[in-house]
């Protein structure tokens, strides 16, 4: 190591003896090294590390698909006049949505437990949605009253088309009281 030390400390060359040797011949300048061995190794290892880091990042990015083929979140729930007051489970099996008709209109809830994503069941006799996976309970409004769920059920966008059909869009969601009771999460529908 000491033999090839590329950067000798400033005082490592022996000092000239105290007696002044005025005519000491100037040493020929050391040949300029393009890069020292240590720097070269540093650069090499750094590049290798950068290569591995970039490969890891590229590998991680690779796992995120750019195009996914999933069904549309929007569907036609049929004529609004076809629904009775209360919770309809008509679309549960196909679209995972409950349509709830109140005296003043409609709202639709995504039937996905906000805890870990199971589908709760509607128990009309107890006026509750109950999740079969960890026992979360929700009221008709979607608020949690028992079990581990951290927040209310999501309501979906619901619109009344000019044809009288209810159009539900599960991609647009809201669950905050105060917001979820208004358009577009609530479709006014005067009972005829």
């Amino acid at each position: 190591m000491s033999e090839t030390n590329p950067n000798p400390a400033p005082d490592s060359t022996p000092k000239a003896p105290a007696a002044p040797v005025a005519a000491a011949p100037a040493k020929p300048a050391a040949p300029a090294k393009p890069i020292s061995r240590g720097d070269f190794l540093w650069a090499g290892w750094s590049m290798l590390a950068a290569f591995f880091a970039a490969s890891a990042a590229a590998g991680a990015r690779f796992m995120f698909p750019n195009v996914i083929y999933e069904p549309s979140q929007k569907f036609n729930a049929g004529q609004a006049s076809g629904y009775d007051l209360g919770v309809s489970t008509k679309w549960l099996n196909e679209q995972r949505v409950w349509i709830v008709r109140t005296p003043s209109g409609f709202y639709a809830m995504w039937a996905r437990c906000t805890h870990l994503g199971c589908t709760p069941n509607w128990w009309g006799d107890q006026n509750r949605f109950k999740c079969p996976c960890h026992g979360s309970n929700y009221t008709l409004d979607g608020d949690v009253i028992a079990g581990p769920a951290p927040m209310p059920l999501w309501r979906t966008k619901v619109e009344l088309a000019p044809t009288g059909d209810l159009i539900v869009d599960k991609a647009v969601l809201e669950n905050k009281p105060g917001k979820r009771e208004h358009a577009p999460y609530f479709a006014n529908y005067a009972s005829a």
Binding site: T119, C133, G135, G147, P148
Partner: peptide, 24 residues
């Protein structure tokens, strides 16, 4: 779209499932 009732994990994960009842 529809979950069986009750829906339980295989036995070695049911302890974790039960833990999820108590904590977020």
């Amino acid at each position: 779209n529809v979950t069986t009732n009750p829906s339980k994990a295989p036995w070695y994960f049911v302890g974790l499932q039960e833990l999820l009842v108590y904590f977020d």
